[in-house]
């Protein structure tokens, strides 16, 4: 009994360290896309390990914890992808270190057909206001 508690505790502790890393990444990274990168990856593995630790210590909870882990694996990348796409469409300013943006070219090509022009103006005004 005690040995499963300790094993589960160690796994949970390593998971919580990954959660802390994800939070640090969200604060330290210079632009939105890099924040999403750090935020999704570290928190996915962190939560998986955290819940796995509880599952080791409390075997009767395994089915529901398994369901929770599967749900997080499937939904976490989807929500980060939706956030990244809407960030790019609204024209969030990217970090100065950014090398190249292939997606910007294709959206400019389609720009004349849609309201893209207006949106980009609004986004430009917004990012000017957001700078400090």
């Amino acid at each position: 009994m005690e040995i499963t508690m300790i094993a589960g505790g160690v796994v949970s502790l390593s998971g919580s360290l990954f959660l802390l890393l994800g939070a640090l990444g969200v604060v330290r990274m210079p632009d939105l896309f890099n924040r999403i990168q750090a935020g999704t990856k570290a928190t996915t593995l962190g939560t998986m390990l955290f819940l796995a630790g509880i599952a080791i210590a409390e075997p009767s909870w395994i089915p529901k914890l398994l369901l929770l882990i599967l749900f997080i694996i499937f939904t976490n990348p989807v929500s980060s992808h939706v956030l990244a796409r809407s960030a790019h469409h609204t024209g969030i300013r990217m970090s100065d270190k950014t090398v190249v943006d292939h997606l910007a070219k294709t959206t400019e090509q389609r720009g004349s057909e849609s309201l893209q022009g207006d949106e980009q103006e609004i986004a430009a005004a917004k990012s000017k206001g957001g700078e400090r």
């Binding site: 890393l21 890099n34 570290a42 270190k97």
Partner: peptide, 26 residues
């Protein structure tokens, strides 16, 4: 791949100089 990804993120977040070189590629 997920495990490698996390060690990679850990390395980048914890190093003081933030070694990133971002781009959007097709």
């Amino acid at each position: 791949a997920l495990l490698i990804a996390n060690l990679d993120v850990a390395r980048r977040v914890l190093s003081p100089s933030l070694p990133i070189n971002p781009a959007i590629v097709e």
